[in-house]
């Protein structure tokens, strides 16, 4: 997963600021790509390349905050670090609520920016890891038989095999077989493991039909 090097994307209409950031970020061994406008960035961005976005709030034609919303709407989950020469509190609040990693006021301390980039890359990396885990889980879930999918919510809700059997109107032995198949297919080592997986998949514990 982490074999592709992350890229720090910088969008700022001020070339001088762009080049300064490039120099600083490259000096810590990261790759940098510079853009004067959001459009240029959108053309260069690829979903499979990890990285983060350093975005100026004031941009010609549209504001950085608007662009943040557009990215979210387009399901482009890149972590954003806002930089602005003149920011105010409402602007900061809005940016942070919308999921910005950091909001830096120009001129900023170099370490603050580098730290924010580091954090953003970690977040991106974590998101990407999480995304790939989810994808695996979904694949595993897909391999379950309808009967196994049926008993999964009952298992994670903590019911005994006998109780599950009663709920489904089958025998306890049959439930026991399905349950071990389920655990094996999902790669769950314990019930707790399975519960966590079910949570990730958004499968809620079923309300048992207790007789």
């Amino acid at each position: 997963m982490n074999d592709v090097a992350p890229i720090v994307f910088v969008v700022d209409d001020d070339p001088s600021v762009r080049r300064a950031i490039e120099r600083l970020v490259e000096s810590v061994g990261l790759q940098v790509e510079l853009f004067a406008s959001p459009q240029e960035f959108l053309q260069a961005w690829r979903r499979d390349v990890p990285g983060c976005l350093v975005l100026d709030i004031r941009l010609p034609g549209k504001s950085g905050l608007d662009f943040q919303r557009e990215l979210a709407e387009a399901n482009i989950p890149i972590p954003i670090i806002f930089i602005t020469a003149h920011g105010d509190i409402p602007m900061t609040v809005r940016a942070m609520k919308s999921g910005a990693v950091e909001f830096l006021t120009k001129p900023f301390r170099d370490q603050d920016l580098l730290d924010a980039i580091q954090l953003a890359l970690e977040r991106d990396s974590a998101r990407r890891k999480q995304d790939s885990e989810m994808a695996t889980l979904r694949e595993l879930y897909k391999s379950l038989t309808p009967r196994e999918r049926e008993i999964l919510p009952l298992v994670v809700s903590g019911l005994l095999n006998k109780q599950i059997a009663a709920n489904l109107g089958t025998s306890e032995a049959t439930v026991k077989v399905h349950r071990s198949q389920l655990m094996r297919k999902m790669g769950a080592n314990s019930l707790a493991d399975l519960v966590r997986m079910a949570e990730k998949l958004g499968i809620r514990a079923a309300k048992p039909n207790v007789p």
């Binding site: 001020d14 001088s16 600021v17 080049r19 300064a20 950031i21 120099r23 600083l24 000096s27 810590v28 004031r58 930089i83 020469a85 003149h86 006021t105 120009k106 001129p107 900023f108 301390r109 170099d110 920016l113």
Partner: peptide
């Protein structure tokens, strides 16, 4: 606000570049 922005842009570049130099 606009004026602060215009002054802060070059200042941001200066500070960043200066820090880069220190690091180098």
């Amino acid at each position: 606000a606009a004026i602060a922005h215009e002054v802060n842009q070059p200042l941001a570049a200066i500070v960043t570049n200066a820090n880069f130099c220190l690091r180098q």
